[in-house]
Design a protein around this nucleic acid. Structure first.
Lengths: 221, 221
DNA sequence: CGTATTCTCAAACGATCGTTTGATTCAAAC
DNA sequence: GTTTGAATCAAACGATCGTTTGAGAATACG
């Protein structure tokens, strides 16, 4: 009918599918969002998913890869601006870890949806996904742990990983906007997230600075 | 209405369904676990779910109600042993909040599965479920917040809710065993969880005790 | 006992799932 | 202008989903 050349379309079919899938996976989960919903939202044919990605599982992997590559790159870049410097504070390192995730959630192009997809992946406990995330994640985690170890010399290495794990939990939870605290209608969403980030960083810094616990029970009642 | 006719069986059909549903929802999610899987695991007929619960959604609600009633009761009982006393520490109150969830995850009767179901519910972001949880949750939260306010008189009420929210995030994450830290093979699971709880309580206490942040930006770079 | 009620069961319902097919359309290479 | 390979499309595939049905078995009550 219309001889509109594909190259002149706003976005390619693959990108439209990835965007729609991201949004729908965030809302309905991986099992809950069907390929018919995804392709309808992306305004492409149903068969396009299997043509371009091979299967639904491969599509899910691509949704992750697209965002995680950028998130990890940004975290590392922020960390490397601080690592080894004398004037680096604990809050700075936590900021390098937390802020890129926050910024991602503010991206216009669906980043806000992705952080919910990420949180969902943790909940799904899917082994394939876990391994995939762990591979892209362990790398980052080790570098941050090394910098924390430098700033907190009195802390056992094991304690650092424990506490970084706790921070990650609170961050995942906060980014996905699970919280009981409801944003007031007169507060913009980015201000709400900024406030959440500040609370989180302060909280995490205090928890991190705590003296080592390895040989002292927490609450001996 | 009538007393269980199959009273001689090990467990009633309803209970067997609830147990199997809990385990399968934890593993595969609400959309991912089918009623055929559930009824097969419970060794009951497929139609039994709709007969006893009305629908799959109602079954999901019952899975929550059964455990949450007990969890909330235990948290309140622990809190009321501490509330208002002179010798109550911040760690004690956090213990009353965190420990019952921990204990629940150690229950033989599938409690360990339920904490993962609970975490999943947060991720699902289902509005019906959220409202249901909020109703059973806001009640608890307010009482704990009041006790925290007593022990931390310098802290704004808003800050208390923010921090309690952060603790809940880290707790939910920890209970569901999402963490990157893998339990070593020579450490029993309950020891692993005990260690996680101690770290969490210590971390949370330090974060809670932090001076108020409401009028001071976190990381003014 | 017989009757009523509660529960279980196999079978089927229509709907929707992920995936595949084969024909058709398009842009570019020759 | 013809050929070629990539991309899109409508249609259908078998499988599985939640739910419903109606008959039969088990229990309770008169």
């Amino acid at each position: 009918m219309t001889p509109a050349p594909y190259a002149s379309r706003e976005r390619s079919t693959k990108e439209r599918i990835l965007g729609a899938a991201e949004a729908l996976f965030a809302t309905h989960g991986f099992a809950g969002a069907s390929l018919r919903q995804v392709t309808a939202a992306a305004r492409v044919n149903l068969a396009a998913v299997n043509y371009h990605f091979g299967s639904k599982d491969k599509l899910i992997e691509e949704v992750f890869r697209r965002r995680l590559d950028e998130l990890n790159t940004r975290r590392l870049a922020a960390l490397q601006r601080l690592a080894g410097r004398d004037d680096t504070s604990l809050e700075d390192v936590l900021d390098a870890y937390i802020r890129p995730a926050l910024d991602l959630s503010r991206t216009d192009g669906g980043g806000a949806a992705f952080v919910r997809v990420l949180a969902r992946a943790y909940a799904e406990h899917n082994e394939t996904l876990r391994r995939f995330l762990s591979e892209n994640y362990g790398h980052i985690l080790r570098q941050f742990a090394a910098e924390f170890a430098r700033l907190l010399p009195g802390l056992a290495k094991e304690d650092i990983y424990w506490r970084l794990d706790i921070v990650t939990g609170a961050l995942t939870y906060a980014m996905a906007d699970f919280g009981i605290i409801q944003r007031k209608s007169d507060v913009a969403e980015r201000d709400h997230r900024e406030t959440a980030a500040e609370h989180l960083i302060r909280f995490a810094a205090a928890g991190m600075r705590n003296p080592s616990v390895s040989n002292a029970p927490a609450s001996p009642r």
